[in-house]
Amino acid sequence: MDGSRILIFMDTKKGCDQITSQLRMDGWPALSIHGDKSQAERDWVLSEFKAGKSPIMTAMDVAASRRDFPGSLEDYVHRIGRTGRAGAKGTTYTFFIATNARFAKELIVILQEAGQKVNPVLAAMGRGAPPPPSWLTELF
């Protein structure tokens, strides 16, 4: 990796561990952090992530309310705000599925106000088109 770090928010502790395990089996340097880990382990994982020794970290997102896209657009904006702070730049990827379609119109407005490109699939959903048949579409 080029010094970048990837933070993956999950809705369950089990999900954090499963995704981390799969990433590691595929050869990616990943660690997970959540409430079932000891404080010492959480501190170690954070230090490894911050130092770039393990540039991929999965973490609980308590605001996600059991979905990959948060339960509100305010929570989404708060979550992506963690990507870049104090002038740092970052990239956010969000898995947007059929059950999230009700957020499409408002999300488009947020993305446009931030000067971001709007994926054509998301734009179509914002106009009322049905979500694509694929259960998962990368939009961002």
Rank of each mutant, 00 (worst) to 15 (best):
E74K: 11
S47G: 08
K105I: 05
V118C: 00
P131E: 06
A64G: 12
A51W: 05
G3K: 11
V118N: 02
P120K: 01
A51N: 08
L46Y: 06
L111S: 00
G87W: 03
T99D: 13
A98M: 10
A30G: 04
D17S: 14
A51V: 00
K117D: 02
S72R: 11
K37L: 09
P55Y: 00
D26H: 13
R24H: 12
G84D: 04
A63R: 03
L122G: 01
R67K: 10
I80S: 02
S4N: 15
I80L: 07
G15T: 12
M57L: 09
G84R: 03
G87P: 06
A63M: 08
L46Q: 06
S21C: 14
A59D: 00
E138V: 10
Q18D: 15
E106D: 13
I97R: 13
R127N: 10
R79P: 04
T92N: 13
R79A: 11
T83E: 08
L111I: 02
V62C: 06
R5C: 10
F9G: 06
A40Q: 11
D11F: 14
S21R: 15
L46W: 06
L107T: 01
V118K: 04
T99M: 14
E138L: 13
M1T: 14
T83N: 10
Q116T: 02
F96I: 01
D43K: 10
A51L: 07
D75R: 10
M10F: 10
P55C: 06
Y76S: 03
F103Y: 09
V121C: 01
K105L: 04
L7N: 10
L31S: 07
F103L: 01
G87A: 07
L46A: 07
C16P: 07
R66I: 08
F140K: 01
F69A: 01
A88N: 11
D26A: 15
A59Q: 05
R67V: 03
R85V: 05
R42E: 05
A123E: 03
K13I: 14
R24C: 14
G87Y: 04
M60T: 07
M57W: 02
F95S: 13
D2H: 15
A129E: 15
R102A: 07
G3S: 13
R79V: 09
